[in-house]
Nucleic acid binder design. Structure first.
Lengths: 338, 338
DNA sequence: CTGAAAGCGCTAACAA
DNA sequence: TTGTTAGCGCTTTCAG
């Protein structure tokens, strides 16, 4: 099966390669008759254009990179869905890269992205990422970058996030309203804006409510493997919190398991609310109150912005900031109180 | 920022482009001294090779495509993880394409894959896919294809699956052992081998146990949107099943919700077991008995096979069949009986 | 050990 | 309306 290319078509039709090329792209320069002949033969010979030849020549790859910490997380998989939905309509291809929450991986990935392999990058940074140079370098190479959800604050470019601070407030106020007096906030990073903002909202709400700082417990579970043990320790503490905010989805299962193991009842002994897009939230034991992020929409919006940045050289990404609010969905895990 | 390429390096060092090219790839033809100079300048100028130029020349893209029905499903996201883990070590890039369970989408995607954009394809077919021509066409273009989980049976190529038939048997026998007399099997496709094989195992177990065919209910929920209503209808039926096997993960939430809505108790009124890799299974209400598929391992194994097929022309994929068994994890949703 | 030159498949001036 | 030609950036003979 020798590969059929433009030259083969040209020979068979006794035309030049440029005529074929133009005909294939429906150029106004080519007669309808010729176009028809070309398209027919192309279909007949199962001609498929070589994208890399075209990319090399046009310096456009029609490909974007999505760089994220992991895929096995409902937020990210829904965001990918949103991104794909836009990429499809635009005819773009999507490369997926996983940082596994490691800065070193993220840097390596972005280095490769400078090669011309992609026309733009959508990124949700790792929980380790503090520096911004690897991203700045990308921009210096004229590769547009758009953040979704997990941004790097010092960088000048578009970002699509949810209203993290307000949600932190909302979550904490919800627990207060339900009668909690010493709620805890479980975070996975001391640098990620999503975590910090949610945490700030949490603290502001408690302070406003007159809860002493000593009762504003914040727990950092930066290591995935020890998360379960860490949570268990907290729940066994004599200052055991009476409410808990899970700043990200993956904290939920260990919390529920630990409570069960220790005979601590949700919501009687401790109320739980989580930032999560889990579709099993309503069937958990007990059903979980969530701050549900618009993951699909965030992906869509970020992709839309990125394509604007790619396709319209006049479009300035640097000041774009889009905030799509999350919603609190109350379920039994925070029942009780007033 | 004018892009630095091999030619720029050559000029600056007063060397030829071919020397640079060889030096960069650490060819034995080049002196250590020259190599060192080249590497230094490359680092200094932040040289990144253009992958498309290289691909065009070498006719290798160092890229694979992963084609699957959806990402927002724990099985698939874990499989992607497994695939990525191998691709990373091999230095390959991963393009993700979603068929959204539509045959037409799948065909379009695979057509593009014939372009040389990818060196190989990993695919889990859509629930609609019956024909195989689109896949055969790929192979005719010398693009190796490996199936993971959802295979197309008539095609001669490698596949990595789990022991679906046995798991169907196992699930049904588990329900029988727990006292079910008229269990139902909920499927999403009448053509997908994973569903058919699980279904066959189910029927074989019941027949073996002397359950009349009339009590071997099989329900096809081919449409996502109406799944909830369909399940509710079944549960309201006077021949309501006393056990239920969910053939795929996404059936779980609607089943639990419908039971709750109708006041049907799991496991007292109906026992539920599901093919799922849900990490929330142990914290559901009640905890869900699962047939847990080795999703990560399936992804890994499929990718490993694909790369063998890509890199070793002597390696024959056509007869490779790998079956990685799932495990039944018993939880409360099937409690009771003997 | 280094260099010259051809060409991967396609596009885009520019001619005709 | 069609054709000629010169590359895109890289690899790879083949010569030197």
């Amino acid at each position: 099966m020798s590969k059929v290319n433009i030259k083969v078509l040209a020979e068979q039709l006794q035309l030049s390669v440029s005529t074929i090329s133009k005909a294939l792209r429906d150029s106004y320069e080519i007669s309808d008759e010729t176009k028809k002949k070309v398209l027919e033969l192309a279909a007949q010979l199962n001609y498929v254009p070589n994208p890399y030849a075209s990319s090399l020549r046009k310096k456009k790859s029609k490909t974007i990179a999505v760089v994220l910490p992991e895929v096995a997380d409902n937020f990210f998989s829904l965001a990918i869905n949103g991104i794909q939905s836009i990429a499809e309509t635009k005819g773009y291809h999507v490369l997926i890269y996983l940082s596994h929450e490691k800065f070193a991986n993220e840097r390596t990935i972005l280095e490769d992205c400078q090669s011309g392999r992609v026309d733009g990058v959508l990124i949700s940074i790792s929980s380790e990422t503090k520096s911004a140079e690897h991203i700045i370098k990308l921009q210096a190479n004229n590769i547009p970058v758009v953040f979704f959800d997990r941004e790097q604050e010092s960088i000048e470019t578009a970002r699509v996030t949810t209203n993290d601070y307000d949600c932190g407030l909302m979550a904490a106020n919800h627990l207060l309203k339900k009668g909690c007096r010493k709620p805890a906030f479980v975070s996975i990073s001391q640098s990620l804006p999503i975590c910090l903002n949610r945490e700030e909202g949490f603290k502001a709400a408690l302070t406003e409510a007159g809860i002493p700082e000593a009762n504003q417990q914040i727990i950092y579970c930066t290591d995935n493997d020890s998360m379960y043990d860490q949570i268990k320790t907290i729940l066994q503490n004599k200052h055991r919190p009476d409410g808990l905010i899970a700043s990200v989805e993956k904290i939920v299962t260990p919390v529920y398991l630990a409570c069960h193991e220790l005979g601590i009842h949700i919501p009687e002994d401790i109320k739980v609310i989580a930032f999560a897009t889990l579709d099993t939230a309503p069937i958990l034991n007990p059903p979980l109150t969530t701050i549900t992020q618009p993951a699909f929409e965030i992906g869509k919006a970020a992709a839309t912005l990125l394509f604007k940045g790619i396709e319209k050289s006049t479009f300035d990404l640097s000041k774009e900031r889009m905030v799509i609010p999350s919603v609190l969905i109350e379920r039994e895990s925070t029942a009780g109180g007033s």
